[in-house]
């Protein structure tokens, strides 16, 4: 048992403990913070495996993006500082059974799948290589998913602009009615 194994088990238990606390906490803001710690621990596991680039992306996207967004939406909800009411017993039992069976199914699949080591040459995660892989249209290139995600994000951007856009005519009429009142 060497140091990296110890660190792996420590990080893994942190992921699990904070994940469980996320689910079981009845204070919604604390749940978000536990989720944050869980995701940071996952990034730690990536770092342990030497995948620095993935770890940095994990932190940027999940911690810096998603958790901050979740916390923002919690801030905007009403009475989010109070404890949530305890769950109904019947639902608790059913959701517990479903969760355990889901876990069982996943672990059964994971144990029965034969993981074979990749025979592809290792690509150094330098900026140059990442860029080439991202836009390469040869075998194992990522240009298709890259473009699909591009279009998805563009659609999301345009959609959010359309939602946020003010209609000028209606606004002026609103103002005039307000003044006449």
């Amino acid at each position: 048992m060497n140091a990296s194994t110890v660190i792996f088990y420590v990080l893994g238990s942190l992921v699990l403990v904070f994940g469980a606390m996320t689910v079981f906490s009845r204070r919604i803001f604390r749940a978000a913070v536990y989720l944050l710690f869980s995701l940071i621990s996952v990034a730690g596991i990536y770092l342990l495996w030497g995948m620095d680039f993935i770890a940095a992306l994990q932190i940027i996207i999940y911690v810096g993006g998603i958790v901050v967004l979740i916390i923002f939406s919690i801030f905007l909800t009403q009475r989010s500082g109070e404890k949530l009411p305890p769950p109904i017993q019947k639902r608790l039992v059913w959701s517990g059974i479903l969760a355990v069976s889901g876990l069982g199914l996943t672990s059964w699949i994971v144990y029965n799948y034969l993981f074979s080591a990749s025979t592809l040459p290792i690509v150094e995660p330098t900026v140059h290589n990442i860029g080439e892989q991202m836009l390469s249209y040869s075998k194992y290139g990522y240009v298709f998913p890259f473009e699909v995600i591009n279009i998805l994000l563009l659609a999301a951007l345009v959609g959010s602009i359309v939602i946020a856009m003010k209609k000028k005519e209606t606004k002026t009429t609103d103002e005039t009615t307000h003044i006449t009142k």
């Binding site: 913070v33 944050l36 940071i40 620095d52 680039f53 940095a56 992306l57 932190i59 940027i60 911690v63 810096g64 993006g65 958790v67 901050v68 916390i71 150094e124 995660p125 330098t126």
Partner: peptide, 16 residues
């Protein structure tokens, strides 16, 4: 080899 990216990631955590 990801020095600057790591710093960007960490500074995005600073808001927490």
């Amino acid at each position: 080899n990801i020095g600057i990216l790591f710093i960007t990631a960490i500074s995005s955590m600073g808001v927490i």
